[in-house]
Design a protein around this nucleic acid. Structure first.
Length: 433
RNA sequence: GCCCCCAUCGUCUAGCGGCCUAGGACACCGGCCUUUCACGCCGGCAGCACGGGUUCGAAUCCCGUUGGGGGUGCCA
């Protein structure tokens, strides 16, 4: 028998919002940390929101985040009788009245309604500031207030953890719950809003709020969860990047910071980079495949070769989308040479000499990373250049860019034939100009 | 307008009356390492919004001001 029972109650309005994901997470953390239960409740009292595909998206996103629920989801659209009964009883007790076909709840004109919020402390509303609100629409459907109050009571919810934007509906829900005959109140915890750089609530219109869009760019679920946990909460020991199991142990609703938190993509990506670097090379290679599938050179990719070269860019990748562009030259027949790179590396007096020496040396050098390395180092030496300088023309000739994965490992993977051909190609291009 | 909430480095946070000349992380700036970039390491910049209290003592408690935000639908 569990002592705590929580619910995550999204309205199916399309893709899961970052704020909703954070709310789901904090509910989940609380449930896990207290060995309680967490149920998923779909708030689709509005007929327009009952479309199955909207709900599927929520399931998929929550599944991706590995936020699990106990029991089957509760669909409010399937509990209309319950809401009707409640409204009827309020009507017969004269707690509510009909107005233009809708039913409104009678709010007392004096007194106060308050609760002790877990994250904000005591919150008090003067009843006189609350209007009689609609509990049943003219079309007969229950409103959010009714469904919310009835379900939280009926489902035995002990902790209501939701966004701060719902603070002002809380007194209404409390009144309804009392009208239902409830003697107690659940613990309310209103989480700080997640805001953008303008300090405004993340909005669908202006901000990139869909969880999927981060997933699609190659943010890992574990990293996303870890980052989201840091929005409004911090571990007591200052260790921010850590396994979710540890966060479950450390997390306490009482420690949640009440002030709004800005969603910082840079930090998200930094944490994601940590997670990517922590992957096994094979895992990283595997994770990259869906992103490579989007590249025009996808059909040229050889899996074995990919397994060999992907790890070379692992620590250079913060989000998975950044992976493929760093690897294209391994697979493209004749990768394009970036103009700015060419300008920088090939217009020096030494460049042609280095290319020629390298071509000659590489034609017979032992094809190992160490020998390749030593060989080019020696060539650089003979021109009085450090390797850092000397490698530039070769890198541009072979990869088309000035920056990229470690050169000798790359050259090694490409093979002698390809490398010599690319050097020759660069020499030809040099001759043309 | 009315109601409600919030206020520590640029950002996310630690701090719950003395351990704070305020700690960590991201970002930024130096340096080291180095075959580029990155990673890693070392160092730096930078904050308790303001004013009153309370107290021997306040970032921490109270009040006010200012500034931000949220809500104000027969949406949720």
């Amino acid at each position: 028998m569990s002592t705590t029972r929580l619910r995550f109650a999204p309205a199916p309005t399309g893709s899961l919002h970052l704020g909703s994901a954070r709310t789901a997470l904090f509910n989940w953390l609380t449930a896990r940390g207290t060995e309680g239960e967490l149920i998923l409740r779909i708030e689709d009292t509005n007929a327009e929101l009952t479309r199955p595909e909207l709900i599927d998206n929520i399931y998929r996103s929550l599944e991706w985040l590995q936020i699990e629920f106990d029991g089957e989801p509760v669909r409010q659209s399937e509990r209309t009788d319950l809401y009707n009964d409640a409204v009827e009883s309020w009507l017969s007790d004269d707690l509510a009245y009909v107005d233009d076909g809708a039913v409104r709840f009678r709010v007392p004109s004096d007194g106060t309604t308050s609760w002790d919020d877990v994250v904000r402390g005591n919150v008090v509303f003067e009843n006189q500031n609350i209007e009689d609100f609609v509990v049943r629409r003219a079309d007969g459907s229950a409103t959010f207030f009714t469904a919310n109050a009835v379900d939280d009571f009926d489902l035995g919810i002990t902790h209501v953890v939701r966004g701060e934007d719902l603070v002002n509906v809380t007194p209404k829900v409390i009144m309804l719950r009392q009208a239902l005959g409830a003697q107690d109140l659940p613990k309310f915890a209103h989480l700080p809003l997640i805001v953008n750089e303008q300090r405004k609530k993340l909005s669908k219109r202006r901000d990139d709020v869909a969880l999927e869009s981060y997933r699609d760019r190659g943010v890992l679920a574990d990293a996303m969860i870890n980052y989201l946990a840091l929005l409004g909460w911090g571990p007591p020991d200052d260790v921010e990047v850590r396994p979710i199991e540890e966060i479950v142990q450390l997390f306490r609703l009482e420690d949640v910071n009440p002030s709004a938190a800005m969603f910082d993509v840079k930090k998200l990506e930094a944490i994601n980079g940590d997670y990517i670097r922590a992957m096994k090379p094979e895992e990283f290679t595997e994770a990259l495949i869906p992103w490579i599938a989007n590249e025009p050179w996808n059909s040229l990719v050889d899996r074995d070769q990919l397994a060999q070269v992907a790890p070379l860019v692992q620590e250079r990748t913060r989000v998975l989308v950044e992976g493929p562009p760093q690897l294209d030259f391994f697979f493209l027949e004749s990768p394009e040479i970036e103009e700015s790179a060419w300008e920088k590396a090939m217009t020096t007096p030494e460049a042609p000499l280095i290319l020629e020496s390298t071509k000659t040396a590489f034609a017979s050098v032992d094809w190992s990373v160490a020998s390749l390395h030593e060989s080019l180092r020696a060539i650089g030496d003979s021109h009085g250049m450090k390797l850092g300088k000397a490698q530039a023309p070769v890198r541009v000739a072979v990869t088309g860019r000035l920056v990229g994965p470690p050169l000798f490992e790359s050259i090694h993977a490409l093979g002698r034939e390809v490398v010599l051909e690319r050097i020759l190609r660069a020499q030809n291009k040099l001759d043309e100009t």
